[in-house]
């Protein structure tokens, strides 16, 4: 037994190497491009490993997006992304919190229907919403505004929040709530004093997953905004170089690194919870 498991350990560790390389290589490439100056992008002589890593890394691209010519595009987009995603996440998580509590805790008709609807909505092809929203938004003045993005983002974030949080809430030891109710607390008091502290990790994880989904959106961002409310993914598609004759490659990648670092840090810290949230929402845990 022991000998076999030792042999197994080596095998699995060996297999982990290509998996990690496959995952990390594009990330390194992103970083590498962001550190290359525009004139060395296509020059393999100024890079190591066949045009992979720059021999003379430079922070010019970061200067370009924060203070230079691309900052007019990037900084407002970063602000818009943060506002839209935080607001959409907040609304979804608050609404879903009550909904998920009811679903996992109370007996009422139609709870399965709510879950099924949430699932159906999450399968919804979001592009199919773009055409009608584009028409209505153009008429009502919601086009290219923050609320004009937050509203469709709810269609992305709300079902996910309901589904994920219901899964988390069903793992909560509800006896604590019953104990509180036996001691004379009402349903609402029990919810506020007992359940919220117990539920906070699930709510928090749901918020992270929901935020990632909103953060990732490109379809709505590129269809329903022009230059006022444009978010980062859409702005990346409109990047231009320092001059119109220069490729925006380095600036795009620098901006990509900037928006990737915070989410990667979230993943590094909350890996276990995110995994639990992603899987318990889909597979019976």
């Amino acid at each position: 037994m022991a000998k076999e498991s030792m042999k197994g350990t080596g095998l699995w560790t060996t297999l982990a190497v290509p998996i990690m390389v496959w995952t990390v290589l594009p990330l390194l490439w992103m970083l590498s491009l962001s550190l290359k100056s525009a004139d060395t992008l296509a020059d393999p002589d100024s890079a190591y490993f066949g045009n992979f890593w720059p021999k003379e890394p430079t922070l010019d691209n970061y200067r370009l997006i924060f203070t230079g010519g691309a900052s007019d595009l990037f900084m407002p987009a970063l602000r818009n992304s943060l506002i839209v995603c935080v607001v959409a996440t907040f609304i979804s998580v608050v609404l879903a919190m009550f909904c998920a509590y009811a679903i996992s805790r109370l007996e009422f008709r139609g709870k399965k229907m709510i879950l099924t609807t949430a699932l159906a909505v999450s399968f919804f092809p979001v592009v199919a919403m773009v055409t009608p929203l584009f028409e209505v938004w153009s008429k009502t003045g919601l086009f290219d505004t923050i609320p004009g993005l937050v509203i469709p983002y709810l269609a992305l974030t709300l079902p996910l929040s309901i589904w994920t949080m219901s899964a988390f809430f069903q793992q909560i030891p509800w006896e604590m709530e019953q104990a509180a109710q036996v001691d004379g607390a009402s349903s609402w008091q029990a919810f506020r004093k007992v359940i919220i502290p117990l539920a906070t990790p699930g709510v928090f994880t749901t918020a992270i997953i929901t935020f990632f989904t909103a953060w990732n959106d490109f379809v709505f961002a590129i269809s329903l905004t022009s230059d006022q409310a444009r978010t980062v993914p859409a702005a990346l598609a409109f990047f231009t170089g320092a001059s119109q004759f220069e490729q925006p490659t380095g600036a795009i990648m620098a901006a990509s690194v900037v928006v990737t670092i915070p989410v990667v840090i979230l993943v590094l810290i909350f890996q276990r919870r995110i995994v639990a949230g992603l899987t318990s929402g889909a597979v019976k845990g």
Binding site: T23, L27, F218, P233, A237, T260, V267
Partner: peptide, 9 residues
């Protein structure tokens, strides 16, 4: 990690 990366990126 790739799960958290923006698809456009």
């Amino acid at each position: 990690i790739p799960y958290s990366i923006i698809t456009v990126v």
